[in-house]
């Protein structure tokens, strides 16, 4: 389980060099911009922009993000198919139908909404993949504290906790193995399985609490939280290029909106469909 879908890929690229906080703001802006587009063609244009950025701005190769792509493709297709099959207009009597699947009627609206939602989900996940792949977690935290004034105790405290996650998952596997070898297995029913899970979780918690006590002592030994401020080993600054990057992102969004509106695809923005 050490293989994770999303992880930082150490490379050189334009996106790698952008200040993490600015990159995060750009990411959120793109999120909003994509979410409020209901027209599938416009969504496709945004997707194209994302695919191009993956290659040219983030310098990522397909095989580097292949595992993450499996996740995004399957989620997007699930949402698309689910909406195409079960969108509310399909159930209005006497509505014009494009085609039938068994007893299910598929309407024009269902197809449009399904595709649009699928494409948007696909875009959003891929944006996240780009962000995670080009942003070192430590740099992100450093930048949030230095550039966004997030209190350092919270930010680094979270980072330390983040470091513990794989340890916990290892430990849980150990606990399960220890139980299994004792021949202590839950009965086949769900209740027994849930009970069992909770008992194992308690064992995990006892260990975790003890570890967090030790960790707290170690952090105190390192003077964590002793002062209001701290100095920084990795200074993070917002530079001119970061501002340019953010402005460009916003411009790309606005220009895309404008062109698509002129051509006639994009009629309105919203969140309802």
């Amino acid at each position: 389980m050490r293989e994770i879908f999303f992880k930082y890929i150490d490379k050189k690229s334009i996106l790698h060099s952008i200040n993490p906080s600015i990159k995060l703001i750009a990411l959120l802006t793109m999120f909003v911009a994509i979410t409020i587009v209901m027209d599938p063609i416009t969504s496709l244009v945004f997707l194209l922009i994302i695919v191009l950025s993956t290659k040219y701005l983030a310098n990522l190769k397909f095989r580097e993000i292949a595992t993450a792509m499996i996740l995004s493709i399957s989620m997007a297709s699930f949402i698309a198919i689910f909406n195409i099959l079960f969108y509310k207009t399909n159930f209005i009597p006497n509505i014009p139908v494009i085609f039938n699947i068994g007893k299910l009627k598929i309407t024009n609206d269902a197809l449009r909404v399904g595709l649009s939602r699928g494409i948007r989900v696909f875009s959003l996940i891929n944006l996240s993949i780009i962000f995670v792949s080009t942003t070192d977690v430590t740099a992100l935290v450093d930048s949030l504290v230095q550039n966004m004034r997030i209190p350092y105790r919270i930010a680094y405290g979270t980072l330390v906790a983040y470091r513990m996650i794989p340890l916990l998952s290892d430990e849980f596997n150990q606990i399960q193995a220890s139980q299994k070898i004792r021949g202590v297995l839950p009965k086949k029913n769900i209740r027994s399985k849930i009970e069992f899970f909770f008992k194992q979780a308690i064992t995990l918690m006892v260990g975790a609490i003890r570890r967090s006590d030790r960790l707290a002592l170690a952090m105190d030994s390192k003077a964590f939280g002793a002062f209001k401020k701290r100095s920084f080993y990795r200074p993070e600054r917002v530079e001119f290029k970061d501002v340019i990057f953010l402005i460009s992102t916003i411009l790309v969004i606005l220009i895309t909106y404008y062109i698509m509106w002129k051509i006639g695809f994009l009629k309105k923005l919203g969140v309802s469909a």
């Binding site: 983040y162 960790l215 002793a226 701290r230 100095s231 080993y233």
Partner: peptide
């Protein structure tokens, strides 16, 4: 237990950690 006294994800960051907290200049 080494696991519960290392705070940071990278080796050099962990060494720097205690110094940053004590406001030692860069």
């Amino acid at each position: 237990d080494p696991e519960s006294q290392i705070a940071m994800l990278k080796v050099e960051d962990d060494v720097a950690f205690g110094l940053e907290n004590r406001l030692v200049p860069l």
